[in-house]
Design a protein around this nucleic acid. Structure first.
Lengths: 200, 200
DNA sequence: GTCTATAAAAGGATAGAC
DNA sequence: GTCTATCCTTTTATAGAC
């Protein structure tokens, strides 16, 4: 599990430090001290700090199934429960961090005010992969949800609920803000399912 | 309308620059050049950069009615339409900024990873005043919403939808992401109203 | 309360030997 | 690919005259 190459060490450290401190507040010196590497090694692999950021965003993008979805879903089969199990995984991270948790992608998306096109597209792609996974659950729920429901919009709404709930829980340092958001989302799904049933 | 005192000039400039560039990416030099002041004047009023931040957050907190709610609501009386009129005001800011708009409070809440207690409480207070205004609308909607609805949770859910919608619209540089989020929130309110009506 | 000059440190990045 | 040393800029903040 210990990262081997210099590249892996740096990406590993940067994923953690960008998450804990943010991009601008993480210095190259922070990355070097954390990895026990020297600047020559870092700059040999990453010509600039932004290239580290790109590597981090690619790692999140490529690891979403293995790092996030698979652990959250375990043996859960029910597609709607998979959605709420994913949200519950975020809840666990909030609690574990004493409510300081922030979504690494969401935080970077708001911290970086004038990102290069490549960075912005990687942020967007991370969101798209996340919502695509939710869309598959919504598809799989089939007739339990109303016929005319906008599946894309509903999947994005789940992401909205996660991001908004995480932001408020973090700001208030109180997981109840997350819980109330998720309870509302659950109510929304329940109402949709009741609607689908009534029309059937 | 032109700010008079040094303090007002700095707060005015900082509100704009923190919003456009973020807190860490706005330097004291940026504030000085924007205000045409010298460092002596700034540090006479604000002993540190963080004190400027505190002043900015206080200004947002104290200006929420006049700067945000009053313009958004104009002559709208219907309490539920007031909620969506406020969200529509955010939509206008998104469009006006070519989808680079970020909520100034939400962006700061995610950019600042280890804020002082005073800063964090000001961020939280800004959110609380926002959701309190929504809560009043929900109260005013009275029996149009179901009896047992959690008004606090629903008001926070409106903030969640705004923040999540803004985040996605900005990241994808496409207002449609905001629109889809708000459409889902509208559907949620419609379902709640239908429920209230059916039980009446 | 505002001016100019400057300290003191941190930041990203580079050079050239090995 | 990695090492050490260092350049150059930016940044926050201070000093002391006016």
């Amino acid at each position: 599990m210990a990262p081997s190459s210099a590249r892996e060490k740096i990406i590993h450290a940067a994923m953690e430090l960008f998450w804990l401190k943010g991009y601008n507040s993480t210095s190259i010196a922070d990355l070097l001290s954390r990895t026990q590497l020297n600047s020559g090694s870092l700059y040999h692999v990453f010509p600039s700090k932004q290239d580290v950021l790109i590597g981090v965003l690619e790692a999140y993008r490529d690891g979403i199934e293995e790092m996030l979805l698979a652990p959250a879903w375990g043996e859960i089969d029910d597609p709607i429960e998979k959605i709420f199990a994913l949200l519950n995984a975020y809840r666990a991270m909030i609690v574990e961090s004493d409510c300081a948790y922030g979504c690494p992608i969401g935080s970077l998306a708001l911290e970086l005010h004038e990102p290069d096109l490549q960075v912005r597209e990687l942020l967007a792609h991370n969101f798209t992969k996340w919502t695509a996974a939710i869309e598959l659950c919504i598809e799989a729920a089939g007739k339990r949800l109303p016929r005319g429901v906008d599946k894309v919009a509903l999947a994005q709404f789940v992401l909205t609920a996660m991001e908004g709930g995480v932001m408020q829980a973090r700001t208030h340092r109180d997981v109840a803000y997350f819980d109330r958001t998720i309870a509302q989302l659950r109510a929304h799904f329940d109402l949709l399912q009741a609607t689908a049933k009534a029309k059937a």
